[in-house]
Design a protein around this nucleic acid. Structure first.
Lengths: 213, 213
DNA sequence: TGTAATGTTTACCAACCGGTCAAATTATCA
DNA sequence: TGATAATTTGACCGGTTGGTAAACATTACA
């Protein structure tokens, strides 16, 4: 066979396994930093430590690479929301959702930026995922939150916008990291900002700014 | 004279005025949608309705165009924060800051995305602005907020992270608009989401989620 | 071990991209 | 009006980019 691309073979070779792993790791590095159009196959090939044609042997096109990467990362990315438990204590559930999301922003900033880049530019490659699996999951969890509010366990509020607020505040520390660091100054160079953010966000979402006794 | 670029002439021509305006408008459209690397001079020229060499007669390079655009937009972009008044009522001041920022996200989503794209990709062109004027302004306003907290006018909280939270939650509706619309579904296609967001954010920042009587 | 399948490399291509140049056209104003 | 400055255009250039072709090298396995 001349072109037994991974997709066409029955079982994947050890080499295929390894190389595709290398490539996707490199692709994550490059795509998350430059966006789709801003990234070149040559860049990715260099980071992956292989020649461009070699890389193109495993993924026929730049788009295919990007797609494979998205597919691989999206599931993990949504895990924190999936864990939101309807049976748990509402305030505690939301608190730990925030904590998990912030943890993701710290541990997987590249994944966060990958999606941020994509969505910022109109989500040309992941529109289906947004309108399908993502919307479904959010609809489901929004219903959970709505029920909590209805039962008086948390304040009445729009569950969708609550989720948006949690997404935006937490992902901000990954996506806008340069700005956060620039504003905080190099004194706070370490990971301390994540702990401060955690404290602040917990306080914000649970108590708000109103003074209370 | 062969190349009487705008910068070198003493007085700017009517034509210069008009064309530069057209170009920056087109540049905003294109850069905000595709990022710097993802945009091409041809695209901008087409949107501006002129030929590429003609455009390059007014801005010698792509970078020069981008810079002129940033310079022009940054000031407006920071206006809402500048208006935060140390003498005003703290909770009301923060509330109207949120409202102004959300208003900006609705009215000037392209400006928001322009910065988002830039910062996401490491702010290669606006590092100085972030560490200089931006940091200075934030430092100043953070001090105001800190004083409010100290005086017991608002809950004690990290003022920097409060500002980040306001930025992220409001700009989210501009930068991640596709996602917001995908999740909310086309039923909520109109601008209603901005009003819902305003209500939610006001509630969130002022009261938090805790149930209170 | 031999051979077929798999993997890698070199050389290459056409389209695109940022930018230049010189000639042509249009506006300005003495 | 005429000359000078300002503006616009088409043709072009060198470098980059996504992707291909085919020869070459390696691996797996009967």
């Amino acid at each position: 066979m001349v072109l037994p691309r991974a997709a066409k073979t029955q079982r994947r070779t050890r080499i295929q396994e390894e190389k595709e792993e290398q490539i996707l790791e490199a692709a994550l590095e490059v795509f998350s930093a430059n966006g789709f159009r801003g990234s070149t196959i040559d860049q990715i090939a260099e980071v992956a430590g292989m020649s461009k044609p070699n890389l193109l042997y495993y993924f026929r096109t730049k788009e295919a690479m990007h797609r494979a990467l998205i597919d691989r990362v999206l599931d993990t990315w949504l895990d924190p929301l999936r864990e939101l438990d309807a049976e748990g204590n509402p305030v505690a559930e939301i608190r730990s959702y925030i904590r998990r999301k912030l943890e993701m922003a710290r541990e997987f900033p590249r994944e966060s930026r990958l999606f941020a880049n994509e969505i910022l530019q109109g989500a040309p490659h992941i529109e289906d995922e947004l309108k399908g699996p993502l919307k479904q999951l959010v609809d489901e969890k929004a219903e959970v939150i709505r029920a909590w509010a209805k039962a008086g366990k948390i304040a009445k509020c729009d569950p969708y916008h609550l989720i948006f607020a949690i997404w935006s505040t937490t992902q901000h520390y990954a996506d806008f990291d340069v700005q956060v660091r620039a504003v905080l100054g190099q004194e706070n160079a370490g990971d301390g900002r994540f702990e401060d953010a955690a404290r602040f966000l917990e306080r914000l979402f649970v108590d708000g700014l109103q003074v209370r006794e």
